[in-house]
Amino acid sequence: MLKEKGLLFDVTMCVGCGSCYKACKEQNKLPQTNKDFLKDHLSENTYTVVEQYGDNYARKLCMHCDEPSCASVCPVGAFKKSDTGAVLYDGDKCIGCRYCMQACPHKVPRYEWEKTQPRVRKCTLCHDRVKAGKLTACAEACPTEATLFGNMDDLIAVAKKRLKENPGKYYQHIYGLEEAGGGHVLILSPVPFEQLGYTAKLPKESMPSLTMKAMEKIPPVVAVGGVFLTGMYWLTKRKNEIAREEKKSNKGIKV
């Protein structure tokens, strides 16, 4: 059913060569930011990094969430989930409030701080290439197939199969499948994910639903509040009138 594309990154297969890092830079025409790619971090000029944790290497990039926080919080709808599964950004709409950066559970979006007309920057899941029927640049460049590109349902099946066939090799969890409502980048690892710098302990429900719970209450609050205030207006007005009338009649008796 899902024809949406995604990536599967398998830590056990990654040799830390940095090919994806370099391919991404090339593909997106990004300038060099650090001589040693292992020491680099996500930035407006780096959409993906390879981080070293002992013998393991972990890629970081946008998870292309199914219900992306970044898209849900943007007041002008500058982020959109495209039909390929990529979460895309439209710099012409953006007002630069940076709520997307604040809200992203994976702390992915970066900002062009040094520009006077800055944009938000992040991985695009190589949208143009995918549209043209190609793989993402990083997947294509990967010599070991640690980064695998494909249809989401295929990737999920592959991931499940690997976990099942090599229970000793993997930490039994597909990161990104359910985290924060799930997304289009899946990760397999031999160790618990917090040891590789991934944000662990994310709730399974999608982040936007947390906000929706509060936003849903707006119509009833407005309705009940409106009625209550109008009611109080008439009630207290009437009360004051009665008090005034009583006052008048009291005085009459006294004089």
Binding site: S72, V73, C74, P75, V76, G77, K93, C94, I95, G96, C97, Y99, P208, T211, M212, A214, M215
Partner: peptide
């Protein structure tokens, strides 16, 4: 672009 929220709506956004 401060006026964008007036014409570009995203009713799911608290902002």
């Amino acid at each position: 672009n401060f006026w964008h929220p007036l014409v570009m709506w995203n009713i799911h956004s608290v902002m």
